[in-house]
């Protein structure tokens, strides 16, 4: 029985839920001139879509929640409406 039992088990992998970037209605855009590299955006991003190395945003998975823009103390991230 155990061999045939289909257990709903999963391990964390990148993008297990598919390219969730398509859910976005507005995208965060970083202004590198204002950024002081404090990394709060990287820390707060619930999707892990901001790179610690260069703050590059992975738009394949960023859902556009805007938490990074709200938390940025330098106001370096602005939310820009997605055009279809």
């Amino acid at each position: 029985m155990r061999d045939s039992c289909v257990n709903p088990l999963s391990r964390p992998v990148k993008g297990a839920g598919g390219p969730t970037g398509s859910w976005r209605t507005s995208r965060p855009v970083l202004d590198g001139r204002k950024c002081n590299n404090c990394l709060l955006c990287w820390l707060y991003c619930p999707e892990g879509s901001i790179s610690k190395e260069d703050r590059a945003i992975d738009y394949d998975f960023c859902k556009g929640c805007g938490v990074c823009a709200a938390e940025c103390p330098q106001k370096a991230i602005s939310m820009v409406k997605e055009e279809v």
Partner: peptide, 22 residues
């Protein structure tokens, strides 16, 4: 790992159908 995670529509039925069969 974890269990009972989110599944898209193509992955969901086999779990439920296998319970029904078992």
């Amino acid at each position: 790992g974890t269990f009972g995670n989110v599944t898209p529509s193509d992955q969901y039925p086999p779990y439920r159908n296998s319970l029904a069969a078992d």
